[in-house]
């Protein structure tokens, strides 16, 4: 099963990016490339997240069954999503609520600082960088910020801590749903209504 999931991930890498971020497969009318679909419009340059530390975190918190390639794709998807995030954006209107709501302030400076803080704490306590620490040691460091997160995974942009944001981004993705069910459900993918009644194909067998 794990192998078929990895094969699925590998074979559908291009699709995954589009599906998870735009919901539309290449070739669909509504399809966009990932960069086009999530391009920034406010003209600002976001604070970059420390890449090595982020990957060190990902190795400790994302499922091993993703494999290195799958994990890297998940991290890259999170980075691209983060780069295109716009703070204080007008949010979808809740039903019958006349007031306009906006998203919160930019979380990325805080997230970057949290990653830097984790790196410093790791070096101070263990004398190595986070990526060089054994996974159990990393999890011990990461447990504290996650302890206040609560059981659920909300929207990543609302996460107080970057680790929770990374987890929410991955586990909230269509690809994570497919991995959980072992089926090509392909949530929010625009596709023909033909075949809707069919049981979704097992991963690896899906076209």
């Amino acid at each position: 099963m794990a192998e078929s999931r990895r094969t699925f991930l590998k074979q559908s890498a291009a699709t995954v990016a589009a599906v998870s971020l735009t919901g539309c497969a290449p070739g669909e009318r509504a399809a966009e490339t990932e960069g086009d679909a999530l391009s920034r419009t406010d003209g600002t340059t976001p604070v970059p997240l420390p890449a090595a530390t982020l990957r060190g975190v990902a190795e400790a918190v994302l499922p091993d069954e993703l494999g290195e390639d799958g994990r890297e794709r998940a991290v890259r998807a999170f980075e691209r999503w983060s780069e295109a995030l716009e703070p204080v954006a007008e949010l979808s209107h809740p039903y019958l609520v006349p007031e306009i709501r906006y998203s919160g302030p930019d979380p990325r400076p805080g997230w970057a600082a949290q990653l830097e803080g984790l790196e410093k704490e790791c070096e101070s306590r263990h004398g190595v960088s986070l990526s060089d620490l054994e996974v159990p040691g990393r999890r011990e460091l990461l447990a504290r910020p996650l302890a206040d997160t609560g059981p659920g995974l909300g929207a990543p942009q609302n996460a107080d801590h970057v680790v929770a944001a990374l987890l929410a981004h991955f586990f909230g993705s269509a690809i994570a749903t497919d991995l959980c069910y072992g089926r090509a459900i392909r949530r929010e993918l625009c596709r023909s209504i033909e075949g809707a009644e069919e049981e979704p194909a097992p991963l690896g067998a899906a076209p």
Binding site: T22, E32, D36, A37, I100, A155, Q157
Partner: peptide
Amino acid sequence: RSDTRARMLAYGENPWPNDH
């Protein structure tokens, strides 16, 4: 609408600009 849909899915943004 494909673009605004993508940002709504990714960030919860209003997909209907200038609608009020």
